[in-house]
Computed example of a mutant assay.
Amino acid sequence: MTTSSLPPTSEMVRAMLTCDAAYEGVFYTAVKTTGIFCRPTCTARKPKPENVVFHRTAEDALTAGFRPCKRCRPLDVKGAAPDWVAALLKEVEAEPSRRWTDEDLVARAIDPVRLRRWFKEQFGMTFHAYVRARRLGAALGSIGAGESIDGAAYDHGYESVSGFRDAFRQTIGTTPGRSRSKALMLYARILTPLGPMIAMAEERGLSMLEFTDRPALPAEIEELRGRYGYAITPGRNGHLDRIERELEQYFAGTLTVFEVALWLPGTAFQQEVWTALQAVPFGETRSYGELAASLGRPGASRAVGRANGQNRVSIVVPCHRIVGADGSLTGYGGGQPRKDFLLKLERRIRFGQGDAVAARSIEVQASLF
């Protein structure tokens, strides 16, 4: 890992001063006057740029003699649940129909206010809202499998059918009876070296994989809910488990072809473009014009570019491999620093820079999980 793989210094200084989340995992800042290194998103008081050196990995900063910051914890995966939250989430997954109260949390030495703050920061909802959505999602799955509405209500922790109907309508957006026509889309957060991602999958395959700070994410979720009629709730299924494993292998440098099943709602033209994206080889790039020509539409570069930008499954449907005609990095929903990181990672894996460098890359990336 050489300094040539880092963004320009002026770009890193700007990202550090503005806490730009798009650079999460792209570089680390090390302060010569304190001997501490941080994430680019650290909220501690900003050092003077002349006192900062930049490192490609946390390992490089450690090797150079810097200590990890206790505030931003650069050795942890960004967004990882602390032990006290992880243990609670394990209980929720083991018994998703359980109703939780603040008294239950206090009995586990968990401050409800602190828990609420963590969930709002990481999930955009409170713990109780998350558990309620998780419970209703399980109930929706039961109704879709043929269980009666009354049975689903009582089996998933509701004391009355009327209360179940009200909660169902508020969270799912329809009545339990009408929900039988809705497909269930489950979602989970997945942690990566470049920041947390949200993955969504229905029973036929993965339908979304986006960085949680992507500006278009709310609109994409609303499109799945409104245009395609999905009921979206937190949960897990085999596709989500598989993409989590495959992403870990991808960033570790041991996977070049994703095998997770995909289900990509969209227009015929969008699906045609997304299929063509998957044909771009690992470690290579194509221009918008070349992608359009491969579809037999040489004059449709702009339309192809628009469909490319509407891709909801980043990395797996590799829209990051599409560049400008001159090879420049063009727009990317996850941010150009991430695009640059992904392209360099893939080139390094495919073409290598010597066995020792490749082995070190794999070791460094794997240590982040």
Results as ranks from 00 to 15, higher is better:
I110G: 00
L62I: 13
W84D: 05
R116F: 09
A64M: 10
T63H: 10
R71F: 00
I110K: 01
A107L: 13
R108Q: 13
K70S: 12
A64V: 09
L115S: 05
V113S: 14
E91Y: 10
A87R: 15
P96S: 13
K78M: 06
K90V: 10
R114Q: 13
A81R: 13
E93F: 09
C72M: 09
I110R: 02
V92N: 04
V77D: 02
R98K: 15
R73T: 10
C72K: 02
A80S: 13
C72W: 00
V77W: 00
A81D: 15
R116E: 14
T63C: 03
L105G: 04
L62Q: 13
I110D: 03
P68L: 05
L75P: 00
L62W: 04
P74K: 02
R67N: 10
D60S: 12
W100V: 02
A87W: 03
E95S: 15
A94M: 14
T57L: 11
E103P: 00
D102V: 04
V106G: 02
D111L: 08
W100L: 02
R67I: 07
K70A: 13
D83V: 12
R114Y: 06
D104C: 02
A94R: 15
R117M: 08
C69A: 07
A58Y: 01
A81G: 01
D102K: 09
D104W: 03
E103C: 01
D111T: 09
A61T: 09
T57E: 11
W118H: 12
A107P: 00
K70Q: 12
E91C: 07
A81T: 10
A107R: 15
E95F: 10
R114N: 08
V113A: 15
V106R: 15
E91H: 13
V92D: 07
V113F: 07
R71P: 00
G79L: 06
R73A: 09
F66I: 09
A109C: 11
T57K: 05
L88C: 06
L89C: 06
A86I: 06
R73D: 02
E59Y: 06
A58C: 10
R67H: 10
E93I: 12
K70L: 11
A61K: 04
F66C: 06
P82G: 04
P82T: 08
L62E: 11
P74C: 03
P82V: 06
W100G: 00
V85C: 01
A64H: 06
A87S: 14
R67K: 14
V106K: 14
L89T: 08
P82R: 06
C72H: 03
I110T: 03
K78Y: 02
T57H: 11
V85T: 04
V77I: 11
P112E: 08
T101F: 07
W118A: 07
L115I: 10
A86V: 08
E95G: 07
L89M: 15
L105V: 06
V113T: 14
E59N: 11
A94W: 15
A87E: 15
P82M: 04
D104T: 03
L62V: 11
R98N: 09
K78R: 12
